[in-house]
């Protein structure tokens, strides 16, 4: 495997991690706000906050890791995407900031403020929507080179159906991933009403998800034919992914093996995410930038890989400890012992 491929695979893996943990987090915020507005707060808030409290900063690091890694492995992408993304990037940053800080203000300061909860929930949907714009831009057609510098055509981007389908997909995915995870998590806490409610949401969001995902593939045919034909070449990966989707929905429907349902879901997204990534190869930004043109020098690439391995050797045991103490600790999850601060 060449260093270019290794670099992009590692980064893509981290982005995938962010999609999963971020979606759970963002969706949870939305369901929390939704339950407060519809008066079902008593059912959901407890499990959601139990899950969110110790992990939100970890979620954020996945995102930071991705873009710092991007600059490291593919410095030229900092130039192209940095120049184009000033506006969408800044908006996403402001939303992320409001969300992160207000979570802390609420959790450690005053509890139960409706305005906070609402902003928290709304920003949770707007962040994936604004971040997903990057994927749209990377499909090409929105960037031109003027005086040697890349310029983004905001109007074309705003009016493109592709933009909006990707936005819809990102929101549907967030809510679906989150609902399936929380169904499982609620089930583990032994909270039957919360499990049933989350299960209903999960099944409800599975349909818009698959419609949006299929819609995008069809739209790509008109927007970026080269990418579309490469997607068709990888039909079997998308097919397997769809089968796993069927599996998750079926298990949810039958009200059994919620843990397996969530694992199927991760598999479904991993297959689709990597199939999308492979079909996008070798472009980072159609047609201006490929992973080969944008790659760093060999010395830097090797040191980054080396640090990455060392870092993982440090982080995986730490993450395991965190999971063991909170997410999978029966007493903590069920809240029977050791009430928190």
């Amino acid at each position: 495997m060449s260093l270019e491929i290794l670099g992009i695979v590692v980064l893509w893996l981290f982005l995938f991690g962010y999609v999963i943990v971020g979606s759970i987090d963002y969706g949870a915020g939305f369901f929390n706000a939704h339950s407060i507005i519809t008066g079902k707060q008593h059912i959901l808030s407890r499990i959601i906050q139990r899950y969110l409290s110790p992990v939100w900063e970890v979620t954020n690091v996945f995102f930071v890791f991705f873009f710092v890694g991007m600059v490291g492995f593919f410095p030229q992408s900092a130039y192209y995407f940095g120049t184009i993304l000033l506006l969408p990037g800044s908006i996403a940053l402001i939303l992320l900031s409001i969300r992160g800080s207000y979570y802390a203000f609420e959790a450690y300061g005053t509890k139960g403020h409706k305005g906070y909860a609402f902003m928290y929930g709304a920003s949770g949907l707007l962040i994936p929507a604004s971040l997903s714009i990057v994927l749209t831009i990377s499909e090409g057609g929105f960037v031109s080179i003027v005086d040697g510098n890349p310029v983004l055509d905001y109007q074309a981007l705003f009016l493109s159906p592709l933009t909006w389908s990707i936005v819809v997909l990102s929101i549907a995915a967030v809510l679906y991933i989150s609902a399936v995870f929380l169904t499982w998590y609620a089930h583990k806490t032994g909270d039957v009403t919360a499990t049933n409610l989350m299960r209903k949401y999960a099944i409800g969001w599975s349909i818009p998800l698959i419609i949006a995902a299929s819609g995008i593939i069809i739209e790509l045919r008109f927007h970026n034919e080269e990418h579309f034909s490469r997607i068709i070449d990888l039909w079997w990966m998308f097919g397997l992914s769809s089968l796993l989707w069927v599996g998750t929905v079926w298990l949810l429907w039958k009200k059994r093996n919620y843990g397996v349902a969530f694992i199927f879901l991760v598999g479904q997204f991993a297959l689709a995410f990597f199939a999308y990534g492979i079909s996008h190869y070798p472009y980072l930004l159609y047609p201006h930038l490929t992973i080969y043109e944008g790659f760093t020098n060999t010395a830097m690439a090797i040191s980054l890989v080396f640090v990455f391995i060392l870092g993982m050797a440090l982080l995986i045991p730490s993450l395991y400890l965190l999971m063991k103490l909170f997410l999978f600790d029966k007493n903590y999850v069920q809240g029977t012992k050791n009430k928190k601060e």
């Binding site: 490291g72 410095p75 900092a78 870092g311």
Partner: peptide, 16 residues
Amino acid sequence: MELAGNIIALPLFMEV
């Protein structure tokens, strides 16, 4: 950052 990414990305990465 394009230039920095080529030379000084390592400590940025370590910071994360």
